Amino acid sequence: RTRTSFTAEQLYRLEMEFQRCQYVVGRERTELARQLNLSETQVKVWFQNRRTKQKK
């Protein structure tokens, strides 16, 4: 599997969503992935990694 390189715009949007809600599921995840031109899996994993980073 190749590592995803997020654009600055994608990271900004993901961070904004994370500040709003640390868990994104269902339709929200589908819509966010579509808007950012990413897969739902990429969005899901980004949120998982971001929550892990916050715990440290």
Rank of each mutant, 00 (worst) to 15 (best):
E9H: 04
L36Y: 01
M16N: 05
Y23D: 09
R3Y: 14
Q54F: 07
K53D: 15
T7R: 04
A33T: 03
G26M: 05
K56Q: 09
K53A: 13
Q35A: 13
R1T: 04
Q22L: 04
E31K: 03
R27C: 12
T41K: 05
Q10R: 02
V43Q: 01
E15F: 04
R1C: 13
Q48T: 11
T52H: 07
L14Y: 04
T52S: 11
T52N: 12
L11Q: 15
A33V: 01
E28H: 06
V24K: 05
W46I: 01
R50F: 04
G26N: 06
Q10L: 01
E40F: 00
L14T: 01
T2K: 08
R27N: 14
K55P: 13
C21F: 08
E28S: 06
N37D: 11
L36K: 00
K44M: 11
A8F: 04
Q42Y: 13
T2Y: 06
N37I: 07
R50A: 09
K56S: 14
T4Q: 10
Q10S: 02
R13D: 05
Y12K: 12
L14F: 01
R1N: 08
V45S: 15
C21W: 03
K55Q: 15
V25Y: 05
R13C: 09
Y12L: 11
Y23W: 04
T7K: 03
V43Y: 03
V43T: 02
T30P: 02
G26H: 05
L36H: 03
V25Q: 14
A8V: 09
F47N: 02
K53L: 15
K44G: 11
T30K: 08
S39K: 07
A33Y: 02
V43K: 01
A33K: 00
K53N: 15
L32A: 01
Q48F: 14
K55N: 14
Y23I: 10
E17G: 02
Q19M: 10
N49G: 11
K56H: 09
Q19V: 09
T30D: 04
R13L: 11
M16L: 12
K44S: 14
G26Y: 05
Q35T: 08
R3S: 15
K56Y: 12
Q19S: 11
R27F: 09
S5V: 08
T30L: 04
L11A: 11
C21N: 14
T4Y: 13
Q54G: 13
N49E: 15
E28G: 05
A33P: 00
S39I: 00
K55E: 15
L14V: 03
R50P: 00
Q42H: 15
E40L: 02
A8W: 05
V24L: 13
V25G: 12
E9S: 05
L32G: 00
N37H: 11
Q19G: 10
T2I: 11
W46V: 03
Q22M: 07
L11K: 07
M16C: 11
Q22N: 07
L36M: 08
K56E: 14
R1A: 15
V45E: 15
R20Y: 04
R3V: 14
K56W: 14
A33W: 04
L11Y: 06
S5W: 08
Y23H: 13
M16E: 14
L14S: 00
C21E: 10
Q54T: 06
R1E: 12
Q10T: 11
T2V: 14
L36P: 02
W46Q: 00
G26C: 03
L38H: 01
L11P: 01
R27S: 15
R27W: 09
N49L: 11
L38C: 08
L32Q: 00
R50Q: 10
R50V: 00
Q10F: 00
Q42S: 05
L14Q: 00
R50S: 04
R27E: 15
V25H: 12
R3W: 13
R27L: 11
Q48G: 06
Y23Q: 14
Q42M: 07
W46D: 01
T30A: 10
E28N: 04
